[in-house]
Structure formats: structure tokens, C-alpha cells
Write a protein that binds this DNA or RNA. Structure first.
Length: 428
RNA sequence: GGAGGAGUGGCAGAGCGGUUGAAUGCACCGGUCUUGAAAACCGGCGAGGGUGAAAGUCCUCCGCGAGUUCGAAUCUCGCCUCCUCCGCCA
């Protein structure tokens, strides 16, 4: 959530920044609401103060020896009509505040100054290109053909067991998938200094409000049909970032660096017809997530580091990729600055997103009340999240980039220790 | 699932209807003393929000939500979490 104080003090600036994200803020409406809120809140709190005083007065009289009825008699004049006014005033206040809150919840984070203008992914900026796409002297297969040829990728069974956009992996492909997750976790724990966390994949609505998935993006989530407001997580970012909710930490505890390997669930509403073939876009997938909670003045350095941590996975697996700086209009709701990593997919002859690393600044932590004590005063932390990496898409990239003419797939050197030394899978 | 018990500030722990945002201790910060440190002593020390140029001032918060009352940390109801015992279970 945006800082409402900023909206009050520099509304034009905020509106301009929002425009870069493609959001038009009705300033007149906002300022009207604010004016109303101010007057109603001042009078409401004034009435409340009056009532408190009167009640305390009764207490004093009783302490001096009057009976309760006598005491009430003495302040009856003051209390007259107060209740009615107060009730009306409190209700009015609640209503304006609800309206303002509802408005605030729809506003995305502001883009950082270093983020380029742009409406969609066409305006994203390529900032680095690493590795050379391999030249193939045979017709390349996509991962679906590679996997189905040996009955190790089975979308038909998954479709029967559940429905579309689910995958079933077997044997060597299932093993490689598992190995990838373990390999990534170890890298982040041992080389990059992250703490391993095993998170629940079901969370309540409050948690999803904290990171900004609710209320705006409810249709992207799977909600459980139980009495409680329980949802499947769309990413481990949700539980990891919420770990520091309602807490004030000491500066020396920073930075918090969490990693988790989890299942992720997305309803993918509104993406019918996109990436329908294969494992690129699934309702259920695995991801190794990186989350950092850092001091406000450290977050942009942390973003560079965290992106490098994700890149190190691709480098270790020797997968060609490029690093994109997202333009303002293509960024997510909570992000102030985002780098996407896109891996080369030979079958599509293009780069496809495999990681997204964002600095959310204090957009999430403000709601979460995740703070650090600086000079005795609580200050909102900055939160960052990044995929390190999406495991299913990494599997796709390995299968396709390491494929051989006979339909087999070489195992990347770095992955072999995680597959008991196996050097090749899907051999004919 | 059944039966009991408990949720108060960073922690421990009082308060169980009246000027209580909350005693006391520990921790923490500042000071006195000391060559220095420790001890001792003195003082300070929750969060969120409103208003104000500021000093200040006001509101809210004792797990969460309703209710009773002029007044609730204290009473009533519902929910959540944790602990103990029984049952079931991976």
C-alpha cells in the first residue's frame, strides 16, 4: 500500500508516477474524500474526548462519596445527546475511511526513478545477455516432444487425473526436476547466505493482503472451500515476506535473507490460450524463492545482489539468458523496480521469463508493519523477492538446450552430483 | 473429535468495573560516581493514527470480533492461538 501521507502532501507527483504505471488517479475525488475525512475525524475524536472526560468525572464523584445515581445526575447535562452525535459521527468516519482504504488498495507501487517509461513488455530494456544459444545441426524438439517420446512427460494422465494445465513427470525427468530444486536451494544456502525456510502452502486472507495479492487479484488465486478464508499460495514470497509481520527488529538483525522451495498455485484466469502446450504455464508448479527484508537505504544494492543470485543458477547450469529491466507499465503491482531473467528456449527460438526479481520498497512492509528500530524510531523495512528459479521452466530449458540428435538429453555438469552422477537421460 | 487451563509492553509478571497505556523486575538508553569497567544511585524508555509551523494536544490498542455499562485489561457471548490429558491419525 502506498503511503497516504505522501498522497496528501504531494498528490501531483504521486499521480504522475502512477500514470507511468498506467493508472489514472482521480485527484479531485481523492482530495474531496480527504477533506471529508479530516473534518469528520476531528469532530468525531473531539466528541469521544468529551465523553471520556464526562465518564471520568463520574468516577471522581463516586470516589468522593456520592452515589452512582447522584454522580450521573451531575454530568447528565454534558452527556445529553452526546451518544447520538457520537454514533452518527463514528459511523460517518468509518464510512469515509473505508472509501479511502478501498481506493488505496487499488493503487500500485510507484516506479523507481531508474525505471524506463513504457506500456508493455516491448519497452523493456535488455541490460545484459549471457551465454551463446547453441547451434543445432538437427531439427530441435520442444520439451513436450522430448518427454513424451520416452513416456516421461505425461500431460494426458495429468489431464485425466485433474484437468488442463497440470503435468505429470516420471522417471528421469521427475528425477531431474527434483535435482534442480535441490541444486538451487543448496546454491542459495551455501554460496549466497540465505536461510532455508519450509513454508505452509496454504495461507489465510490476512497474509495475502500483506503482500498485495488481495483484494485486487483474488481471481488469480485458488481459494479453499472451507469455512476459513484459506488460499493456496501463488508463490512462497507470500509466507516468506509475511514472516516479519507486526514486528520491530534491531538493525543488527538485518538483512533477513530467506529461501524456500515450494509448490505454487495460480488459477491463470485470463490467460486462456497462452502457452497451452507444455510445462511453461501450469496451475501448479514448483519454485525456489528468494526473499530479503533489508534497511531502506540498502534495498537497491540488495536488488542487484539478489538478481545476481538468480543469475548464478543459470550460469551454473550453463543456460543462455538475458537480463531485462522492466518498464514502468510492465511491472507487477507491488514492485518499484524489477529485473526479469529470460532463458533461451531453442524450440521457441526466443528468450522466455524464468525469474523475476523485484524491490517492493516499503509497499508491502507498510501494511505488514515490518519495521526496524533506527535511532529509537520504528522505520519500515524494504522487501524484495525473486525467483531463484522457477523449477519447471528450468527443467524445460535444460531439456531443450541440452538435447541431442537421438532425442536424449545431457545432464548439466553442475546437476550431475544431484543425479547420482548420471550424465545423460532419455537415451533411446 | 472430547475434557480442562492460559493468552497483558522486548521478556518476566501484577492488575479482575472508575483520573490504568497499564504496578514491579529484567533488558535497553542518558547521567552521577570511578584511572577504566562493574556495582550502586538518579532520570528516561510501547505501537498506530489525527491535528498543529512547532511545543503540544487528541483518538485507538491488554489474542481477535461483537455486547453490557456513564465508564471495560477487568463482566457476557462468539472466534482464533497455545499448553495438559483422552481418542484418532501420517
Amino acid at each position: 500500500m502506498l503511503d497516504i501521507k505522501r498522497l496528501r502532501t504531494e498528490p501531483e507527483l504521486v499521480a504522475q508516477a502512477l500514470l507511468r504505471k498506467g493508472v489514472t488517479l482521480d485527484l479531485d475525488n481523492f482530495q474531496q474524500l480527504e477533506a471529508k475525512r479530516k473534518s469528520v475525524q476531528v469532530s468525531s475524536e473531539g466528541l469521544q474526548a468529551e465523553k471520556k472526560k464526562a465518564s471520568k468525572l463520574i468516577g471522581q464523584f463516586v470516589a468522593q462519596g456520592l452515589t452512582v445515581d447522584q454522580a450521573k445526575e451531575k454530568v447528565a447535562e454534558q452527556l445529553k445527546d452526546l451518544d447520538q452525535q457520537l454514533a452518527a459521527s463514528a459511523e460517518a468516519l468509518q464510512q469515509v475511511q473505508n472509501e479511502i482504504e478501498a481506493l488505496m488498495l487499488t493503487l500500485p507501487n510507484l516506479p523507481h526513478a531508474s525505471v524506463p517509461d513504457g506500456k508493455s513488455e516491448e519497452q523493456n530494456l535488455e541490460v545484459a545477455r549471457v551465454g551463446q544459444p547453441r547451434a543445432f545441426d538437427f531439427p530441435v524438439l520442444d520439451h513436450v516432444s522430448l518427454g513424451e517420446r520416452r513416456q516421461q512427460l505425461d500431460f494426458e494422465s495429468a489431464g485425466r487425473l485433474t484437468g488442463s494445465r497440470f503435468a505429470l513427470m516420471r522417471h528421469e525427468i521427475a528425477q531431474m526436476h527434483r535435482a534442480l530444486g535441490q541444486f538451487m536451494l543448496d546454491l542459495h544456502i551455501e554460496q549466497h547466505g540465505y536461510e532455508l525456510v519450509n513454508v505452509p502452502v496454504i495461507v489465510n486472507d490476512q497474509t495475502l493482503y500483506g503482500t498485495g495479492q488481495l483484494p485486487k487479484f483474488a481471481e488469480d488465486l485458488f481459494r479453499l472451500s472451507v469455512e476459513q478464508p484459506y488460499y493456496l499460495i501463488p508463490t512462497a514470497e507470500v509466507p516468506l515476506t509475511n514472516l516479519l509481520r507486526d514486528s520491530i527488529v534491531e538493525p543488527e538483525q538485518l538483512p533477513f535473507k530467506f529461501t524456500a522451495h515450494s509448490l505454487c498455485f495460480r488459477s491463470e484466469a485470463g490467460s486462456y490460450g497462452r502457452d497451452t502446450r507444455g510445462m511453461i504455464r501450469q496451475h501448479q508448479f514448483e519454485k525456489v524463492e528468494l526473499v530479503q527484508l533489508v534497511a531502506a537505504d540498502q534495498s537497491y544494492q540488495a536488488l542487484e545482489e539478489m538478481t545476481a543470485h538468480a543469475e548464478n543458477v543459470l550460469k551454473a547450469l550453463e543456460l543462455p539468458y538475458r537480463k531485462m529491466l522492466l518498464c514502468a507499465g510492465d511491472m507487477g503491482f507491488a514492485a518499484a523496480k524489477t529485473y526479469d531473467l529470460e532463458v533461451w528456449l531453442p524450440s521457441q527460438n526466443t528468450y522466455r521469463e524464468i525469474s523475476s526479481c523485484s524491490n517492493c520498497e516499503d509497499f508491502q512492509t507498510r501494511r505488514l508493519q515490518a519495521r526496524v528500530r533506527v535511532d529509537g524510531k520504528p522505520q519500515a523495512l524494504h522487501s524484495l523477492n525473486g525467483s531463484g528459479l522457477a523449477v519447471g521452466r528450468t527443467l524445460v530449458a535444460v531439456l531443450e538446450n541440452y538435447q541431442q540428435a537421438d532425442g536424449s538429453v545431457l545432464v548439466p555438469k553442475a546437476l550431475q552430483p544431484y543425479m547420482r552422477g548420471v550424465e545423460r537421460i532419455l537415451a533411446p
